[in-house]
Simulated assay, not measured.
Amino acid sequence: MSTERITRSAAGKVVVVTGGARGIGRAVASALADAGAVVALGDIDASTVASTGTEIGAATARHLDVTDPASFTSFLAEVEKTCGPIDVLINNAGIMPVGRFTEETDEITRRILDINVYGVILGTKLVLPKFLARGRGHVVNMASMAGENPTPGMATYCASKQAVLSFTETMRLEHRGTGVRFSAVLPTFTRTEMITGTRAPRALLAEPADVAAAVTALIARPRRRVSVTRTAGVLAAFNKLTPRPIGEFMARRLGVHRTFIDVDRDARRAYDDRLAAD
């Protein structure tokens, strides 16, 4: 798809990006702003999202707790007041604590599910009535390859992303013919703070810009799902077609079975500390 067509499709659209202060969310928001979209950023980190909004030229950037109905409702109302009717909601906010399941506290388990799953469901529930009334709108949910490829060291995260995939597909089927579109984005390991301290296989790595480009193209031409990178998507599809022992053997050869268990906790401390503080 040409850059001109993508820019023409995004220009003037009011796009909400949750979890927009850093990483993939920031990259997506920046790409959309460059394409002429009216971008609204929300994030639990109020100071960082404000500075990000200024740096990328967002129309608005505010505190948002995607697990709190009052916060999400207020945020969306302010976006519509400031920017106009929302065209696209990108449910990007998510967290990814890693390590053995037996070492995961109940608090962290609940936070993963609250942010990664409930936040997606809540955001969708809040924008959907107006989308349906207008007969148009697009919900883009950030899932993960991990939702289809169980990965040791991130059991709850994998479960949360599988839930996002199932929810997105169900919404698509339930609202077929209404003019409202639903899409899932499945990034592979992406070079953000989330994989700090891990040894993610280089062949499977994506850059935030790769995900941003895929999301921008997805808004121009909605599809039910897109994998990032294409190579990782092909490998994942191939893995589904191979006998399970072979697929698991290949994962072990790539080191995936240890990637999120043998982690450098010192390197990862800043990310883990921020999760505990939010």
Rank of each mutant, 00 (worst) to 15 (best):
121 I>P: 00
33 A>V: 12
151 T>Y: 12
57 G>H: 05
204 L>K: 09
90 I>Q: 00
278 D>E: 14
133 A>F: 08
213 A>K: 12
187 P>R: 07
88 V>R: 01
28 V>G: 12
190 T>W: 01
260 F>T: 12
62 R>A: 14
126 L>N: 05
270 A>F: 06
1 M>G: 13
157 Y>D: 00
199 R>N: 15
237 A>W: 15
5 R>V: 11
61 A>Y: 03
209 A>H: 06
196 T>M: 09
263 V>A: 07
61 A>S: 15
155 A>L: 09
11 A>T: 13
205 L>K: 09
214 A>W: 02
72 F>T: 14
207 E>V: 11
50 A>L: 09
90 I>R: 00
10 A>D: 11
37 A>E: 05
227 S>V: 01
143 A>M: 08
188 T>R: 07
200 A>D: 12
181 R>H: 15
26 R>A: 14
261 I>C: 01
134 R>F: 01
38 V>I: 15
216 T>N: 00
274 R>Q: 12
112 I>E: 13
116 N>H: 10
29 A>D: 05
49 V>R: 02
119 G>R: 07
225 R>P: 00
89 L>P: 05
138 H>F: 01
2 S>E: 10
114 D>N: 12
48 T>G: 14
256 V>G: 01
43 D>A: 07
244 R>G: 06
258 R>S: 11
83 C>R: 04
7 T>L: 05
157 Y>H: 08
167 F>S: 02
114 D>C: 00
253 R>W: 04
29 A>F: 02
122 L>M: 02
49 V>N: 08
180 V>A: 00
203 A>T: 13
111 R>V: 00
255 G>V: 14
250 M>H: 02
249 F>V: 00
112 I>K: 07
198 T>D: 12
205 L>F: 08
198 T>L: 10
126 L>D: 03
247 G>E: 05
121 I>N: 01
84 G>H: 08
185 V>E: 10
153 G>C: 10
23 G>V: 09
49 V>C: 08
8 R>S: 14
35 A>E: 04
99 G>N: 08
8 R>H: 12
233 G>Y: 10
40 A>C: 14
44 I>W: 09
191 R>C: 10
117 V>E: 06
216 T>Y: 00
32 L>C: 11
40 A>V: 13
139 V>N: 02
29 A>P: 02
116 N>P: 07
